[in-house]
Simulated scan of single mutants.
Amino acid sequence: MSLAPTLAPTLVYVTFLARDVAALAQFYVDALGLEEVLASRDERYREVRGGGCMIGFATQAVRPFIKLPEIEPVGTRAIVTFDVGTVAQVAVMAARAVAQGATLVREGQDTFFGQHQAVLSDPEGNVFRLSAASGS
């Protein structure tokens, strides 16, 4: 008997633990133009729509609720990538993000896997990439 799923799962949420959920959600609204999901708004949680995936920001108060143990952070543990459509938009969106408080880690450049990407970190240090197909 196989335990393999009949359909591949679909990624619908990514959640970051955050010191200031309101400020971090607002950063992604202002810097990248994502839409906040107001129905999910709470003092412990904020959520933005990032294309087909929701991005949540939760306070440490959620740890006991989901039975998540305290984990010592060890550098960058994840990278979120946003497709911005064209190579020119990578630079435009990177500049917009920096103007809203992001830190530019690496300017846009072509990668070995056919993407042109800029690497940034948000105001709480979470790393994200702005990406487009090379030559687009």
Rank of each mutant, 00 (worst) to 15 (best):
L104R: 10
E43M: 05
R49L: 11
V119E: 14
D110F: 07
M93S: 05
V92L: 13
I55D: 00
G52W: 03
V21S: 04
S121N: 09
Q89R: 11
L38K: 13
R49F: 02
K67F: 10
T6P: 12
A61W: 12
A133I: 13
G135V: 02
V84P: 06
P5C: 06
V90H: 07
V92A: 14
R19Y: 13
E35H: 11
V84C: 09
Y28L: 05
A31V: 09
L104D: 06
G101V: 11
A95N: 14
V90G: 08
D83V: 07
D122I: 01
P73Q: 01
E72V: 14
A22E: 13
A88T: 11
R46C: 00
R96N: 05
P69S: 05
V84H: 05
P64H: 00
A8Q: 14
A118E: 03
V62G: 03
I79P: 02
A102V: 06
Q26S: 09
R63Y: 03
S40G: 10
E124I: 00
T76L: 07
E72G: 09
A95T: 12
D122K: 00
L68F: 06
I66G: 00
V80I: 06
G108R: 08
P5K: 11
E107T: 08
Q109E: 14
V29P: 08
